[in-house]
C-alpha cells in the first residue's frame, strides 16, 4: 500500500468578508473549510469534487501555501507547512506546484512563452545555458505544443485558451515537482480541449510519478481522471472513496443529489435516481447540524439537525459523513 504524501489534519479556514454598502450582505465570516482531514497517497490522482464556494479551491491554496490554515496542520512528506521559512520554504515551492483555473489570467501577458516556462528554473537555479533551454523545450514538447520552437517566442495573447493552459502546465511541471494541485484546469476550456488537458495530466503522472490533487466541479471528469475522490460541501468533506465506488454507489445524500442533477441523455437507465434533494430548504429550523440538513430529504430532524456527523469509515478506504449513509433511495431507477 502506498504511503500518504499529503495530509490535512483537522484544517479549518475562515475568510472575513466585507459588507456591501447597499445592505443585503453584512460583513461576516465565511467558513471555507471546517475541520477537514484527508490523506493523499503517493502517486495517485485525488479528486476534490464540489460546487462553487464549497472550499475546494481554498484547500488547494492551503497546500501550495498561498494561504495559511487557521487551525489544523497541513503536512507534506511529514513536514508541517506552517513551520516552513526561508530556504526550506523555497525548497518546498520547488516540490509543490499549482495549475490555475483561468489560463487567460495565469500567464503574465508581458512575458513570452519561453520566459514564463523558464522562470521557475531560473528561480531555483536548476540549470543554466543550453541545458536550461533544452529543458524548457522538451517540457513544452511534452505538453503537446509542437514543434516547441514555434511557440517559445510567442506571447500569451497569440495563443488559444487551451494552448495557454498547456503552457501553464509546462511551467508547473518544469520543476519536476512531487505534488501538483490542479484547480479546475479545464473549466474555462472547450470540451474537446478538456480531454487534451486530462490526457496531459495522466501522461505527466505516468512519466514523472507525481501526485495530483485534482479540484473539479465535474463528477464525470473526476471519474475519468481520479483514483480516489472526496466530495466537499460547504467546507465539510461528505464522502471519500475510490472514484468508481463514490460515483456508482454513492452513500451520502448530497453526493446522490449531485448525481441526480447531472444531465444524462442516453444514460438514464444506467444511473439510478436517488431523489435525496428537497425542492425547498427546510423552513423554521436553524442549521447547526449536518451542513446538508436543510436540503436533505432523508434527514432526521432530531439527530441531523443538531449534530455534525463526522467522517466515519463504512468500508475499506470508504468514509461518509452521514448518520444514515445509503439509507433508502437509490434502489434501482425509480423515476427519471
Amino acid at each position: 500500500m502506498p504511503e500518504p504524501i499529503l495530509k490535512l489534519e483537522e484544517v479549518s479556514k475562515t475568510y472575513r468578508t466585507k459588507g456591501s454598502m447597499f445592505g443585503g450582505r453584512a460583513a461576516g465570516l465565511v467558513k471555507a473549510l471546517q475541520c477537514v482531514s484527508l490523506e493523499v497517497l503517493k502517486g495517485e490522482i485525488f479528486g476534490l469534487v464540489g460546487e462553487s464556494g464549497s472550499g475546494k479551491t481554498t484547500a488547494g491554496r492551503l497546500i501550495v501555501k498561498l494561504e495559511s490554515p487557521e487551525s489544523g496542520r497541513v503536512l507534506l512528506n511529514g513536514e508541517v507547512l506552517s513551520t516552513l521559512r526561508g530556504r526550506r520554504l523555497k525548497a518546498y515551492r520547488r516540490r509543490v506546484q499549482m495549475i490555475f483555473q483561468d489560463p487567460y489570467q495565469s500567464l503574465n501577458p508581458q512575458l513570452s512563452i519561453y520566459e514564463s516556462v523558464v522562470e521557475p528554473i531560473t528561480i531555483h537555479r536548476l540549470a543554466a545555458g543550453r541545458e536550461r533551454m533544452e529543458r524548457v523545450l522538451s517540457m513544452i514538447q511534452t505538453v503537446g505544443l509542437s514543434p516547441p520552437e514555434s511557440f517559445v517566442n510567442r506571447y500569451p495573447h497569440q495563443l488559444s485558451g487551451g494552448q495557454r493552459q498547456r503552457v501553464a502546465i509546462a511551467r508547473a511541471m518544469v520543476l519536476e515537482p512531487d505534488f501538483v494541485v490542479a484547480d479546475e484546469p479545464t473549466s474555462m476550456l472547450d470540451a474537446s480541449y478538456s480531454a487534451k488537458i486530462f490526457n496531459i495530466i495522466l501522461e505527466m503522472r505516468k512519466r514523472f510519478g507525481i501526485t495530483i490533487l485534482f479540484i473539479t466541479h465535474s463528477l464525470a471528469a473526476a471519474r475519468y481522471l481520479c483514483d480516489r475522490i472526496a466530495v466537499i460541501y460547504r467546507g465539510h468533506l461528505m464522502e471519500v472513496g475510490t472514484a468508481a465506488e463514490v460515483i456508482h454507489h454513492p452513500l451520502h445524500p448530497y453526493t446522490r443529489a449531485l448525481i441526480d442533477a447531472l444531465p444524462k441523455f442516453g444514460l438514464a437507465e444506467q444511473i439510478p435516481r436517488y431523489n435525496t434533494l428537497l425542492e425547498e430548504e427546510r423552513a423554521g429550523v436553524e442549521a447547526v447540524g449536518c451542513p446538508f440538513f436543510m436540503r436533505c430529504r432523508k434527514a432526521h430532524r432530531t439527530q441531523c439537525g443538531r449534530e455534525v456527523p463526522g467522517l466515519e469509515p463504512v468500508g475499506p478506504g470508504r468514509f461518509v459523513a452521514c448518520f444514515f449513509p445509503g439509507n433508502g433511495g437509490g434502489a434501482g431507477g425509480k423515476g427519471s
Partner: peptide, 23 residues
C-alpha cells in the same frame, strides 16, 4: 463524433477520451 468522444460521461464503460487534434 470527435466531440462526443472527447466528453467524459458518468456511466457506461470508462473509455479513454480522444481529444480533437489541432486548432
Amino acid at each position: 463524433r470527435a466531440l462526443l468522444a472527447s466528453y467524459p460521461t458518468l456511466a457506461g464503460e470508462k473509455r479513454d477520451l480522444v481529444p480533437i487534434p489541432g486548432e
